[in-house]
């Protein structure tokens, strides 16, 4: 057995009211890793998290923790803690008692408990808030209490269910970095659920892309972004142009009536494929020197770049560029070999 494995899910099936939510899902999570489950709502990512936490017992399949089967173990006997989407703080207790809750259940003596709770509050940046009531805190502060309340129990794995969903953009970015810092400093496994692809790419060591109760792809953020395995992932992670093409031979693909050199090989001769090109990877050149030409339909200013909708032989392409073209203008487009990603059609 792999020593570094901490959680293994094997063929997990979960049904709700006759509807299949998880469809024979298998997954290994390594110790001290930051894993993110990413997917649209209803894809089963939260359900997977709740299976690990013990709130849901799967219809079939097993959950291994440290190599031991914990499938039927109730949540309070598991070495994992959860940070809930809606914080789920205890409204009848103040900040200190919320954080101390788990330790008090373990009957930790007061003289040990006190410094531990205070230390944890300091780590999450809430020093001096001990006596505050929960309702006197802002959303971000409540979120920090929830994180401290879980971490103080020194779980082997911390489960986070869209913990930043209710925060505003600026605070969310701050907390993303802070969570990453906490995970590195405390050196424990984080399993994070989000539907926000940017959040997933920012924080994770490993991203698990899910859709309709199945895992679509597991990989590092770079892999997921640069080498999406199918059109769903390419669409879900950032914007993409996906067009049908023919893999003429190794390192040569034909689409939109032009042959492009690329870095992919191993396909059959003239195999039909799908081609993914990220909008920022299309270079705009004069029409005469372009590999492709297109008619600019719309130009939208996005701050860092312009977003252009370009008509190429009846198909709309999305292009991000720092220089604006005018609507109605004909432009040339070049795509370098590294910027072309080929997916086989079977993967769809």
């Amino acid at each position: 057995m792999d020593e570094s494995l901490i959680v293994s899910l094997k063929d997990i099936v979960v049904d709700f009211d006759g509807e299949r939510v998880l469809n024979g899902l298998s997954l290994d999570i390594h110790d001290k890793e930051f894993v993110t489950f990413l997917g649209p709502s209803g894809c089963g990512k939260t359900t997977t998290l709740r299976v690990i936490a013990g709130f849901i017992t799967p219809q079939s399949g097993s959950v291994l923790f440290d190599g031991k089967d914990i499938t039927g173990l109730p949540p309070y006997k598991r070495q994992v803690n959860t940070v809930f989407q809606k914080y789920a703080l205890f409204p009848h207790l103040n900040v200190f008692e919320n954080v101390a809750f788990g330790l008090r259940l373990k009957k930790m003596p007061e003289e040990q408990l006190r410094p531990k709770v205070l230390e944890m509050l300091e780590i999450v940046g809430l020093k001096g808030f001990e006596r505050r009531g929960i309702h006197q805190l802002s959303g971000g502060q409540q979120q920090r209490v929830a994180i401290a309340r879980s971490l103080v129990n020194q779980p082997r794995v911390l489960l986070l269910d869209e913990p930043l969903g209710a925060l505003d953009l600026k605070l969310r970015k701050e907390m993303q970095l802070e969570l990453k810092r906490l995970q590195r400093e405390l050196n424990i496994t984080f399993v994070y659920v989000t539907h926000d692809q940017e959040e997933a790419l920012t924080m994770s060591d490993t991203v698990v892309v899910m859709n309709k109760g199945n895992i679509q792809q597991i990989g590092s953020p770079q892999d997921i972004y640069n080498e999406p395995q199918n059109a769903f992932i390419a669409n879900f992670i950032g914007d993409s142009n996906i067009v049908d093409g023919i893999m003429v031979k190794d390192f040569l693909v034909s689409f939109c009536g032009h042959d492009f050199s690329c870095v992919d090989r191993g396909f059959a001769y003239n195999e039909p494929v799908q081609v993914v090109v990220r909008p920022e990877d299309v270079a705009i050149v004069p029409p005469s020197t372009g590999m492709l030409t297109g008619l600019v339909r719309d130009v939208i200013f996005k701050g860092v770049h312009f977003e252009m909708h370009v008509d190429v032989e009846g198909k709309e392409w999305l292009i991000h560029s720092t220089q604006a073209s005018q609507p109605g203008e004909i432009i040339g487009m070049n795509i370098g070999p590294d910027e072309i990603h080929i997916m086989s059609r079977e993967g769809v």
């Binding site: 949540p75 803690n81 959860t82 789920a88 259940l105 129990n153």
Partner: peptide, 15 residues
């Protein structure tokens, strides 16, 4: 009382 509060209690070690 939200369900998640009861779940939080169980999660933190309450039978």
């Amino acid at each position: 009382i939200d369900d998640s509060i009861i779940e939080a209690a169980q999660d933190l070690g309450c039978n």
